[in-house]
Amino acid sequence: MSDPLEKVSSNKSFEGELTKYKFKSAALGGLSANFNLFLPTNASPSNKVPVLVYLAGLTCTEDNGFVKGSFLGPASSQGIAILFPDTSPRGAGIQGEDVDWDFGTGAGFYLNATNPKFSAHYNMYTHIALELPTVIEAAGIPIDWKRQSIFGHSMGGHGALTMYLSSPQKQYRSASAFSPVSNPTKCPWGEKAFAGYLQGGVEEAKEKYDATELIAKNKEPVHILIDFGTADNFYKQNQLLPENFLKAARDANYDEFQVRVRSQEGYDHSYYFISTFASDHVHFHANFLKA
C-alpha cells in the first residue's frame, strides 16, 4: 500500500493552483515518487473536475510539462486539471540503469517490467493508471476520475497512446501525442527499452506497448490526435514512425475524425513545438472530458 501524499510546494497559476506532491510508491517498490497537479479555480469538494494526464519524454521529470508546455492557461480556461507524473522510478540503484540517457532513470517507457532485474521498481504503467488516481482520491482532491484523458510527448506520446488503447473499460476518453514513438518495436529506442525491461523483449511488447500493433487490433471507437514536426531529427532518424501508426489505423477503418495525424512543417522535437500546439490538444480533450 502506498503512503499518503506530502505537499512539497504550491503556486498560484492562471487563477488555479499548481502543487507538487511526493509519496512512497508501492508500485515503484517503495521508492519516493513526485508528481505535479494543476487544479483550476472551479475545482471544489462539490465540483470535481475532469483531468488530463501528461506523460513527458526521455530524460524529463515531472516538471518539464508544466514549465515548458504552455498547458496551464488553456486547462484553466476549460476547467480541467492536469496531472504531471515522473518518467521513471528514481533511486532504485539497479546496476546499469544510469549508463545511458535513453534507458533506466528518466526512461521508464510507461510499462510494467517483467525482467526480474527491473520488475520490483519499473512499473510506471501501474503507477500512472492505478496508483496515482487512488492516492489522489484518498487525499480528498476534487478530481472526477470517471473523466480522464491522456496525452504526452515522444516516449510520453508512446505511453499515452498505448495506455489509452490497452486500458480496460476505456479508462481514458481520448488520447493525443506530440512526436510520439509510434511503433517502438521497430525503432532503436523501443527495441533497447523492451530488451532490457521485458523478459520477452520486442515480442512481449507487441501485446501491450506498441501503439501501431494495438490500433491494428482495436475494435472500439477511438479519439486520437497526433502532431509531429517535419524538421524533427528523431523523426528523420526513424525513431517516431507516425506514418506506420496512421497506416495501421486506416487499415483498421479508422477515419480522420477518429484518428488524426498532422505533420507540422518546419517544427522540431522541442517544447517550442509542443507549446505552439498545446492549446489545440487541451481543447481537443475538452470536447470529450466535458461531454
Score class of each variant (00 low, 15 high):
residue 1 M to V: 15
residue 1 M to H: 14
residue 3 D to W: 10
residue 4 P to V: 13
residue 6 E to S: 15
residue 7 K to S: 14
residue 9 S to V: 10
residue 11 N to E: 15
residue 16 G to D: 08
residue 16 G to C: 09
residue 20 K to P: 00
residue 21 Y to A: 03
residue 22 K to T: 13
residue 24 K to W: 03
residue 25 S to N: 06
residue 26 A to W: 08
residue 28 L to S: 11
residue 30 G to F: 06
residue 30 G to R: 08
residue 36 N to L: 12
residue 38 F to I: 09
residue 38 F to P: 00
residue 39 L to Y: 00
residue 43 A to P: 00
residue 47 N to I: 03
residue 49 V to W: 00
residue 52 L to G: 01
residue 54 Y to C: 05
residue 54 Y to Q: 10
residue 59 T to Y: 03
residue 60 C to F: 06
residue 61 T to D: 07
residue 62 E to A: 12
residue 70 S to E: 13
residue 71 F to Y: 11
residue 72 L to H: 00
residue 74 P to S: 07
residue 81 A to D: 05
residue 83 L to A: 03
residue 83 L to V: 03
residue 85 P to T: 11
residue 87 T to V: 14
residue 88 S to T: 09
residue 89 P to G: 05
residue 93 G to C: 06
residue 94 I to P: 00
residue 97 E to R: 09
residue 98 D to G: 14
residue 99 V to Q: 11
residue 99 V to A: 11
residue 100 D to G: 11
residue 101 W to K: 14
residue 103 F to E: 09
residue 105 T to Y: 05
residue 108 G to P: 01
residue 108 G to L: 05
residue 109 F to C: 06
residue 109 F to Y: 14
residue 115 N to S: 11
residue 115 N to H: 08
residue 120 A to I: 03
residue 124 M to R: 07
residue 127 H to M: 12
residue 128 I to G: 00
residue 129 A to L: 13
residue 130 L to Y: 12
residue 130 L to A: 15
residue 139 A to G: 06
residue 141 I to M: 02
residue 143 I to G: 00
residue 145 W to Q: 08
residue 150 I to M: 01
residue 158 H to K: 14
residue 160 A to L: 05
residue 167 S to F: 00
residue 168 P to I: 14
residue 169 Q to C: 09
residue 184 P to N: 02
residue 187 C to M: 14
residue 192 K to S: 13
residue 194 F to M: 08
residue 195 A to E: 13
residue 196 G to C: 07
residue 197 Y to D: 02
residue 197 Y to T: 08
residue 199 Q to F: 04
residue 203 E to K: 12
residue 204 E to S: 04
residue 204 E to W: 01
residue 206 K to C: 03
residue 208 K to C: 06
residue 209 Y to T: 07
residue 217 K to E: 11
residue 221 P to L: 09
residue 223 H to T: 10
residue 229 G to M: 07
residue 230 T to N: 04
residue 238 N to G: 09
residue 241 L to W: 01
residue 241 L to T: 06
residue 245 F to K: 07
residue 246 L to M: 12
residue 248 A to Y: 01
residue 249 A to L: 03
residue 250 R to H: 04
residue 251 D to N: 12
residue 253 N to I: 12
residue 255 D to V: 12
residue 258 Q to C: 04
residue 263 S to C: 06
residue 263 S to Y: 07
residue 265 E to M: 15
residue 267 Y to C: 08
residue 268 D to L: 07
residue 269 H to R: 09
residue 270 S to E: 02
residue 271 Y to M: 10
residue 273 F to I: 09
residue 277 F to Y: 10
residue 277 F to W: 08
residue 277 F to K: 13
residue 279 S to H: 09
residue 281 H to A: 10
residue 282 V to Y: 02
residue 283 H to E: 14
residue 283 H to V: 13
residue 283 H to R: 15
